[in-house]
Amino acid sequence: MTFAYFDNLSHAQQRVYRMSDSVHALRLREPRTLEPLVTALREALATGRVEDTEQATARLSDALCERLGVVRTRLEVLEVRPSSSTGELHGMYTLERGQRPLIQLWMRTAKHARVVAFRTYLRTLLHELCHHLDFLLLELPSSFHTEGFFQRESSLFHQLVPRPARQRLSGAAKGVAENTPDISPGRRRRGG
């Protein structure tokens, strides 16, 4: 299945979209060993302090990049999310020639300036990191929001925050956890 904007893409972009859509998971080496970093991030976010949250986020992001064999990003945590009539900006990935890639995350809601929920914040980090991985790990020339993209984001999330056993079994029964293409460090996808 493709999203509605697929028809507006060039043939070359559609090929990249399909390549992205075909990779459903990213596998981390020993994800349980990252649990202290995930816990530290949860605790830092709960303080509501930008500096603490930025440091904890950077440590987790750096560890994920190291595990996946890609260059680390710069990371910036900002206060209140920018918003418009179409919604709030949760995060942004910027890739500029000659500079280390940048991930920016906002930690407070636009309407009430409340600290966002941990799971939402972590998913936003992983979402922006998936854009980074599209370019450097999968070696795609563009990073599109595809079903595969969102599945990769979820695969990382569930390795860092495992689901209860009952939920894992129901997902496997639907074929979600089994027989899906994935990329592990050392198994790079080449554009072609």
Rank of each mutant, 00 (worst) to 15 (best):
E30R: 11
R15T: 13
L68S: 12
L160R: 02
L126A: 06
R108S: 14
A25S: 05
R152D: 00
C65N: 05
H24I: 01
A12H: 01
R27E: 14
K174C: 03
R189G: 13
Q99H: 15
A113S: 15
E51G: 02
T109I: 07
A177F: 00
L125E: 13
P141C: 11
E30N: 10
A40M: 03
S83G: 15
H90N: 15
H90Y: 15
R187H: 14
L156T: 04
E128H: 12
A12V: 03
H158G: 02
I103L: 08
V80Y: 02
H11R: 13
N179S: 05
S143F: 07
R97L: 07
P185E: 07
D134N: 11
L64T: 12
S84V: 04
L169R: 13
R168C: 10
R27I: 09
Q167P: 00
R189V: 15
T73G: 09
A113M: 07
E30F: 07
T53C: 12
Q55S: 10
V71C: 01
L26P: 04
P101L: 12
R188K: 11
E76S: 15
Y93K: 13
Q55V: 06
R15F: 03
R29C: 05
P141T: 08
V115S: 15
E30V: 01
R15M: 07
T57N: 04
R97K: 10
L37Y: 05
R152K: 04
V71F: 02
L41K: 02
R29V: 03
D62Y: 02
W106P: 00
A58N: 05
R123P: 02
E30A: 08
